[in-house]
C-alpha cells in the first residue's frame, strides 16, 4: 500500500575531516595550480599541453640547434673536430665566425644533390610499393573475424622483437646469387642463371618495404577497422558494383590512414642508412650513406651537420604544405 504522500527529507551532508586534510580535499593542488595560472592569464589547459612541448624542446629542438650551430663551423683536426663558432676577442668583443661553405659545397658538388634526389626517388618508390603491399594486408585484417584480428596484429608487430639489423642482414642470405630465392627459382625451373638482386636498388626497395611494412599497416588498419560496413552495403544497394564501391567509398574514407602510413614510411626511408648500406650496391646513392661517410670516414662534422639540416628542411617543407592543405580543407567545410 502506498502512502498518500511521501515525506522525503533532504539534508546536506557535512564534509568529513578537518584542518589540512579538509583543505586539500576541497582545494586539491591541481586546483590552486590552475588558479595560480589563471592569475597570470594562462589557461590550466595549457599546462597539459606543456608536457609534449617540453619533451620536444629537450629531445628535438635542442639537439637540432646544436647540429644547426655545427653546420656553420669549420673542420679542424682536433677534438672536437670543428672550430668554435664564437670566440672572445682580446679587446672584449665577441667574435662570431659563420662558415657558409658547407652549404655552398652541398650545391656545388653534385654528389650531394644527386644523393638527395636519389634518396627522395627511392623513398617515394618504396613508399608506394609499401602502400600497395600494406593496403590489402590491412584491409584483410580489418575484415577478418573479430577473434582473428588481435593475433593478426601481433604477427604484424612480431618482427619488431628481433633486431632490425639482423632482419635486414638476413635478406642478404635470401637475395644473394646463391641465396634462397635464386635456389628456389632455379629449382622451380623459372630461371637458368641466378638473378642479380643483391647490391642493386631493387634489393633496397625490398628491404625498405619489408622493414617499414608495419608502419604502413597499423595506421591503415586502425582507419579501415573503424569503417562502417553498412556504407558498402548502402553503395551496393544504390547500384554500385563491389569494385566501384571500393574506389568510391573505401578508398576516399581510408585517405587519412593512407597519408599517415605514407608519412611514417617515407620520412625514415629518405634518411635510411642501414638498408642501402647492407643491401644496396656501390651505385646506390642515398643521403644517409653520404652522411655516414662524411661523419665517420672523413670526420667532417660541420659538413655532415649541413647535410642533416638540408635533409630536415626537405622533409619539413612537404609536411607543412600538407598540413596547410588539410587546414584549408577543414576551413572550407565550416
Amino acid at each position: 500500500m502506498l502512502p498518500d504522500q511521501l515525506d522525503v527529507k533532504v539534508t546536506s551532508q557535512p564534509l568529513h575531516g578537518s584542518g589540512v586534510l579538509r583543505f586539500v580535499r576541497e582545494c586539491p593542488p591541481y586546483r590552486w595550480a590552475a588558479g595560480l595560472c589563471s592569475v597570470f592569464g594562462i589557461q590550466s589547459r595549457s599546462l597539459t599541453v606543456a608536457v609534449p612541448y617540453l619533451w620536444l624542446l629537450a629531445f628535438f629542438l635542442a639537439p637540432f640547434l646544436i647540429v644547426f650551430k655545427l653546420s656553420f663551423s669549420e673542420i679542424l683536426i682536433a677534438m672536437p673536430p670543428y672550430a668554435p663558432l664564437y670566440e672572445m676577442a682580446e679587446d672584449g668583443y665577441l667574435q662570431i665566425t659563420l662558415h657558409l661553405e658547407n652549404y655552398s659545397l652541398l650545391f656545388q658538388d653534385d654528389l650531394y644533390w644527386k644523393s638527395y634526389v636519389s634518396s627522395l626517388e627511392i623513398a617515394i618508390v618504396s613508399t608506394m610499393l609499401t602502400l600497395m603491399v600494406g593496403f590489402p594486408i590491412a584491409y584483410g585484417m580489418a575484415r577478418a573475424p573479430r577473434p582473428w584480428r588481435l593475433p593478426l596484429m601481433m604477427m604484424v608487430i612480431l618482427p619488431f622483437w628481433t633486431s632490425f639489423l639482423i632482419r635486414v642482414y638476413a635478406w642478404i642470405g635470401i637475395l644473394k646469387p646463391e641465396g634462397f630465392l635464386n635456389m628456389f627459382l632455379t629449382w622451380l625451373g623459372v630461371i637458368d642463371e641466378p638473378l642479380i638482386i643483391l647490391h642493386t636498388n631493387i634489393a633496397v626497395y625490398i628491404g625498405i618495404v619489408y622493414s617499414y611494412l608495419p608502419f604502413m599497416i597499423l595506421p591503415l588498419y586502425a582507419n579501415l577497422e573503424k569503417m562502417d560496413i553498412s556504407l558498402l552495403e548502402a553503395a551496393a544497394d544504390l547500384g554500385c558494383t563491389p569494385f566501384k564501391a571500393f574506389w568510391k567509398i573505401t578508398f576516399p574514407l581510408a585517405m587519412p590512414g593512407i597519408i599517415a602510413g605514407c608519412f611514417l614510411v617515407f620520412i625514415p626511408a629518405v634518411g635510411e642508412f642501414v638498408i642501402p648500406d647492407l643491401l644496396g650496391g656501390s651505385s646506390t646513392l642515398m643521403i644517409g650513406k653520404t652522411l655516414w661517410a662524411e661523419f665517420f670516414n672523413n670526420r667532417d662534422w660541420p659538413l655532415s651537420s649541413a647535410v642533416a639540416v638540408v635533409l630536415l628542411l626537405l622533409l619539413v617543407v612537404p609536411i607543412v604544405w600538407f598540413q596547410r592543405l588539410q587546414a584549408k580543407r577543414e576551413a572550407q567545410l565550416n
Partner: peptide
C-alpha cells in the same frame, strides 16, 4: 544487391561521410 529493384534505408542511415 546492386541489381535488385529495391532500395534500403539503413538503421544507421549509412550516409557517405565524405
Amino acid at each position: 544487391p546492386h541489381k535488385r529493384p529495391v532500395n534500403m534505408m539503413f538503421q544507421s542511415y549509412a550516409l557517405f561521410p565524405h
